[in-house]
């Protein structure tokens, strides 16, 4: 019983981290129809920005609690600077082109950002440990956890509920849903598609950067952190269905729990557990758990 509880808690923490990133990925795909390989780079840049801003706050002798504000600020800064810049200058030129071509564009972007962040921040590691101790320790079952780990769950819940509410209960959200559903018809109804694209992309970048910024306190921020996160968040959106927000949540939970079950019970299968779930979903529901099968072109 205790083991089951541990598996669930560990799975939920991992799933929360994953969900924040995958939510941005699925949102960008839903609206812009771009499968964004550079999403991992935005995550990494978020972590770097968090390191810089937390460092700045610490130098100004702000109270440690402000470091949480710094994390949020980092994500907002990355989104506001990187989002519009890339959307306006680069992605805009490729709308309407083949979706696979757009994957390639983001792959090129991934390569470029990898070196650009190295040019800005160098290769030496950054640590953002100030926020990590803010929430103390929490004991759950026979183990105790760092409170911050559980705070990530709260952040993921806020993101998920916020996006759900925003999409389903606000006018702006309805407009975005209309564009997700069919952008041509939405445009003919007088919706400014360009603005929706810009907003959705920027918000997607924000979520990736938020994931990175909130992970920064528990890792060493250095080159290469962008790669690992791409593959797992791809697995999440494949399992959940591309472009589906509920799918991203369920996909993240499935991956999280599958992984923590493997670690606790059959550790040799940890890496493979994610691929195994993905393969199983692909065989039985290749379009993902929450995706309507696409109609063919007429």
């Amino acid at each position: 019983m205790d083991l089951a509880l541990t598996i669930l808690i560990d799975g939920a923490i991992y799933a929360s981290w994953l969900f924040i990133v995958a939510l941005g990925l699925t949102l960008i795909f839903g609206v812009l129809k771009i499968l964004n390989i550079a999403h991992g780079s935005f995550y990494a840049i978020g972590a770097y920005a968090a390191a810089s801003i937390v460092g700045l706050f610490a130098a100004e002798k702000f109270a440690p609690a402000f470091s949480l504000v710094a994390l949020l600020l980092a994500a907002v800064a990355v989104a506001v600077i990187v989002g519009p810049l890339l959307e306006r200058l680069l992605l805009r030129r490729f709308y309407g082109r083949d979706e696979v071509l757009l994957v390639l564009v983001t792959y090129a972007l991934f390569l470029i950002l990898e070196d650009v962040s190295k040019l800005i921040w160098g290769v030496n590691p950054y640590y953002v440990t100030e926020p990590y101790g803010l929430f103390g320790d929490v004991s759950l079952g026979s183990l105790f956890y760092v409170g911050y780990d559980l705070a990530i769950v709260a952040v993921a819940l806020i993101c998920g509920v916020g996006v759900w509410y925003g999409l389903n209960r606000t006018v702006l959200g309805k407009i975005v849903l209309a564009v997700i559903h069919n952008d041509e018809i939405a445009a003919s109804m007088g919706i400014n598609i360009g603005k929706v694209y810009l907003g959705a992309f920027t918000f997607g970048v924000f979520l990736a950067a938020l994931g990175g910024a909130f992970t920064a306190p528990m890792i060493s921020v250095q080159p290469g952190i962008s790669v690992g996160v791409i593959i797992v968040s791809f697995a999440v959106v494949i399992i959940g269905g591309l472009g589906s927000i509920g799918g991203a949540a369920i996909g993240a939970l499935i991956v999280g729990v599958a992984r923590s079950t493997a670690v606790h019970i059959w550790p040799a299968a940890e890496l493979f557990s994610i691929y195994l779930v993905m393969a199983a979903v692909l065989i039985f529901r290749p379009e993902g758990l929450f995706q309507r099968a696409v109609a063919r072109r007429i």
């Binding site: 795909f29 129809k33 499968l35 083949d98 979706e99 696979v100 994957v103 791809f234 697995a235 494949i238 591309l242 993905m278 393969a279 692909l282 290749p286 379009e287 696409v294 063919r296 072109r297």
Partner: peptide, 11 residues
């Protein structure tokens, strides 16, 4: 077709 085919083969 399209991105689904690409994703499935990638997976």
């Amino acid at each position: 077709r399209s991105i689904f085919f690409a994703m499935l083969t990638l997976a």
